[in-house]
Amino acid sequence: MSDQIELRVNGKSIRVAGGTVVAAAIALAGVSCFRKSVLGEARGPLCGMGICMECRVTINAQPHCRSCQVLCEEGMEVRTDE
């Protein structure tokens, strides 16, 4: 499938296929830490189905979005905890 959508993950441009979820785009960008836990641990997706809240990131300045449930869109700005 050809790359169709361009978005930015932590400021870095990445192209992904249509139908890719934001969580996958983050992984494709080589980022393993989606959020920092209360004690500062790096966390990534656990359930992949929208219930565990571990994959929450900031999408277009809206914090706490479940990246596993949101499809990538052209020009999206995605930020993880670094």
Binding site: G19, A23, S37, P45, M49, C72
Partner: peptide, 26 residues
């Protein structure tokens, strides 16, 4: 999910969850 030492590391996902994400580009 049941907790065991190290289970919070990134890269540990539910089997169904990983499959779902893999189908969506992971």
């Amino acid at each position: 999910f049941l907790p065991f030492p190290g289970w919070t590391l990134p890269g540990i996902l539910g089997p169904g969850g990983l499959q779902s994400l893999a189908k969506s580009g992971w």
